[in-house]
């Protein structure tokens, strides 16, 4: 097998990985800071794709400002959902949160069906990116480079935010000990609203960014949230870098699995998940649950 083709296949894996990362990172972030398993995460991803389709009115050239607008809308929606729906259930047992976010999934699915209809919506890439670039003598869709760059940009910005800013430090602290943070006088509820809004905005960005190469319909929310959970289970629920590593591994395993055993390519991903769950149940970069004394 020649190097050129391996590079091409690596890139297809990377393109898939970047869409998985954008999809899953918000889920992990929200779980890390808020301890909420957000079943509606895939719904926000789907909503992002619909919102993009809606704001650009089917015109692919509006992609750039459209994506910015979708992120802004995602922040607003996320903040509202946290403030109005999530906050009242924080003190309750976990299954309240699970039921609530699952209900949200159903409501959003029916909501988009009412607003946009059940038909598939599709938006092509902007004209400048609709053509292949040549990689080692083989064509590769130019838009995938945008997707990969976007994922790297988001990862970089998140790193900077979490490691280099005061708010980021507070978010990290919130994942460790929320009560202590409150005792120190930090406005924790406001912080949690911000993190939830950011997580939702990342999901809507992910949905919007993949629309030019995919299609959106009311049912993709469930598919998306399952994929997101696989990524964070492998990478470690609550870990941003885990989401990055999990997405990378799954993307590449799919890309090369297809070459090795095409008949069972989709089994490899689940196999990885099983191995991780057996060896490190808290995920590759996750934190093992603290032993309570």
């Amino acid at each position: 097998m020649d190097i050129g083709f391996l590079l091409l296949q690596f890139l297809t894996g990377l393109a898939y990985a970047s869409s998985l990362f954008l999809l899953a990172v918000g889920l992990s972030l929200i779980f890390g800071a808020l301890g909420i398993v957000n079943f509606a995460h895939g719904s926000f991803y789907m909503l992002g794709a619909y919102l993009l389709y809606w704001v650009v009115r089917g015109n692919p050239e509006g992609l750039w400002w459209g994506m910015l607008l979708v992120v802004a809308l995602g922040l607003v929606i996320g903040a509202l959902v946290e403030r109005l729906l999530m906050r009242p259930v924080y003190g309750r047992p976990e299954h309240y949160q699970i039921l609530l976010t699952y209900a949200l999934l159903l409501v959003i699915e029916d909501g988009v069906k009412l607003l946009f209809g059940p038909a598939y919506k599709s938006l092509g890439p902007p004209a400048a990116l609709a053509y292949p670039v040549w990689i080692a003598g083989a064509p590769f869709p130019a838009y995938y480079f945008v997707q990969i760059a976007l994922a790297l940009l988001v990862a970089g910005l998140l790193w900077f935010f979490l490691q280099r800013t005061r708010t980021g430090a507070l978010v990290r602290a919130a994942t460790l000990d929320r009560e202590m943070l409150e005792a120190l006088g930090v406005n924790v509820p406001k912080l949690l609203t911000a993190v939830f809004a950011l997580g939702v905005a990342l999901a809507t960005l992910g949905g919007a960014a993949t629309l030019p190469m995919q299609t959106v319909s009311p049912g993709i929310a469930v598919e998306a949230v399952i994929s997101a959970f696989i990524v964070v289970v492998v990478g470690g629920l609550g870990s941003v870098w885990g989401a990055l590593l999990g997405a990378f591994l799954i993307g590449e395993i799919q890309a090369f699995g297809v070459l090795i055993l095409p008949d069972f390519a989709i089994a490899f991903v689940y196999l990885l998940m099983v191995v991780v769950l057996l060896v490190r149940p808290w995920g590759l970069l996750g934190r093992p649950p603290a032993v309570r004394t």
Partner: peptide
């Protein structure tokens, strides 16, 4: 010369497409 079986409802086909074309 090739058989590709993506999961039903897949969103990403790029690896399958390159493997098929190869």
């Amino acid at each position: 010369v090739s058989e590709q079986w993506p999961k039903f409802g897949s969103s990403d086909y790029s690896s399958y497409i390159t493997a098929l074309m190869r």
